[in-house]
Structure formats: structure tokens, C-alpha cells
């Protein structure tokens, strides 16, 4: 059975106007895909193609108009919040803004289990330290604040936080695009290791074709809210069918 299946997903933003009709802008139309266990799905597209909106819909940060999203056999809209936190977590693009600047690293990482599982602070700290080791952060750094870390280290903290609740699916929205090339490779390697260790499925969203090609089993190309190409990464990159995918590939250096 598929972990996640998205059918005919439609979403538009409505801008209310003082006079005249409300303006409707379609961001996702008839998006359809499935995600199996232990798989990494890459989603590529340029700015404004709806890829970040898709991430927000899948994590229920935003609602959608029509379509059906099924997560582990349950309708996404009907999953109680507490259960959802154990199914889907997200890593954000900006390692500078995705961590609360007033909290220590271990507090950021431990917060999810303190909130959801009501783990007492001392135990939560122990678990957070263990997770820090798994994402390659020295436990000595646990009492530092976000601004004392480099971009790559901050992104590791974000990944550690997302993994604390042992989600089935990890959604990564441009997780490496703010990082330097040499750091990018470190984080990508880490993600591959973690996927194996935790038996995770991932949705890896990026504008960068080369990164998506490298990390994902399947690739989905979004163009103005529509899926224009979807298939095993090898095929999509070797033998693109849609004209837009071809242009994308030609443009990539």
C-alpha cells in the first residue's frame, strides 16, 4: 500500500477585491502522485510553480479546494492533529529563519516531544542529544543558540527536530539551496543515511535539477501548478518527454 496518495489536488488563492469580482489564482491543478514506503520523491519546478504550496498542503499548514489526499489509508483532513505529527514533518529552506533565535539547540530539537508526548525536560534533553549525534552535531553544542551555528549546522538542527517524532514522511522544502556547495554534499549524504536508518519516505522539493536527480527515486516536474512529467528519476533525466522538462535540462549547467 502506498504511504501517501494525492488525487486530483486543486488549490487556488482568492484575493478579495474591494469592487468587482474576487480574483482567483490557481496554484495547483489536478496534481496526482503516490509515494511508497522508503522512497524519495523529488519535486522540481521554478519559482511560482506551486511546489512550496504543495508542501504546505501536505503538512496541513494550508487547506486545499478539491481533490483527495490519503495518508496511510486515512483522509488527510480527518487525521487528528496529534497523529498527523507522527506521520509528516518538514524541513524548511531557510536555516536562518526556521529556528527560534531565543532557544538553545537542544530545546529546539526537543520541543516536538515535549509538546506532543509531554516528555519531561530532562528526558527530552537526553533524546535530543542522541538525535544530535545522529545528524552529526557534537553534543557539546547543545546549549548554543542558533546564531552560533553555521548554515549547514543549522540545517542539521532542523532535520533533527523534524525526526524527533519519528515521522513516516519527511518533507524537505529546498533544504540545501541556501548552503554552500561543499556543505550541500554533506547534508545530502546525511539525508541518504537517515532515510536508510529511519526507514523514511521523503518528498524532496527543489529548483535544482542536479540535486533532485541525485537524491530521488522518482521525479515529478511541476509547471504552473501542473504535473508535466513524473517517473523514475533515471528515465525523467535520461529521456524527458515533456518539452518543459527538456528545456529545464538544457538550461542546467
Amino acid at each position: 500500500m502506498n504511504l501517501l496518495s494525492v488525487k486530483n489536488l486543486n488549490k487556488s488563492y482568492v484575493t478579495k477585491k474591494l469592487m468587482g469580482k474576487n480574483e482567483e489564482r490557481k496554484v495547483l491543478s489536478n496534481v496526482q502522485f503516490e509515494l511508497g514506503e522508503n522512497k524519495i520523491l523529488g519535486i522540481v519546478g521554478e519559482s511560482g510553480c506551486g511546489k512550496s504550496t504543495l508542501a504546505k498542503v501536505l503538512t496541513r499548514l494550508e487547506d486545499f479546494q478539491s481533490g483527495e489526499i490519503t495518508l496511510c489509508g486515512q483522509n488527510l483532513r480527518e487525521i487528528p492533529q496529534k497523529n498527523l505529527t507522527h506521520l509528516v514533518q518538514m524541513v524548511f529552506q531557510d536555516p536562518y529563519q526556521s529556528l527560534n533565535p531565543r532557544k538553545m539547540a537542544w530545546e529546539i530539537i526537543a520541543d516536538p516531544i515535549m509538546v506532543v508526548e509531554k516528555t519531561p525536560r530532562p528526558q527530552a534533553k537526553i533524546q535530543a542529544l542522541a538525535m544530535m549525534a545522529k545528524v552529526g552535531l557534537l553534543p557539546e553544542l547543545s546549549e548554543r543558540y542558533p546564531h552560533q551555528f553555521s548554515g549547514g549546522q543549522r540545517q542539521r538542527i532542523g532535520i533533527a527536530r523534524a525526526l524527533m517524532l519519528k515521522p513516516k514522511i519527511l518533507i524537505l522544502d529546498e533544504p540545501v539551496s541556501a548552503l554552500d556547495v561543499s556543505i550541500q554534499a554533506q547534508v545530502l549524504n546525511l539525508l541518504l543515511d537517515l532515510q536508510k536508518e529511519f526507514g523514511l519516505s521523503m518528498i524532496f522539493i527543489s529548483h535544482d535539477l542536479s540535486v533532485v536527480k541525485h537524491i530521488s527515486d522518482e521525479t515529478l516536474v511541476l509547471y504552473f501548478g501542473e504535473v508535466v512529467e513524473h517517473g523514475p528519476s533515471e528515465n525523467v533525466f535520461k529521456n524527458p518527454q515533456h518539452a518543459y522538462t527538456k528545456t529545464l535540462l538544457e538550461s542546467a549547467p
Binding site: L61, Q89, F92, S98, K103, D111, V115, V116, R161, A162
Partner: peptide
């Protein structure tokens, strides 16, 4: 709207917790 607040939403923190534990310390 910063991602760290969104992240707190994602692990199910209540609005009160988000207001007083995430946002307020950054207004001090």
C-alpha cells in the same frame, strides 16, 4: 509567518504555546 513558527504548528504546539513560548521571547 517565519518557518520556526510553522515548524511549531507542525508538531502540534497550541496557539498559546506558540504565542508565549515562540513569538513573545522574540519581542522582548
Amino acid at each position: 509567518n517565519k518557518p520556526y513558527v510553522q515548524a511549531a504548528h507542525l508538531y502540534g504546539a497550541s496557539s498559546l504555546r506558540i504565542l508565549f513560548k515562540e513569538i513573545l521571547p522574540n519581542c522582548i
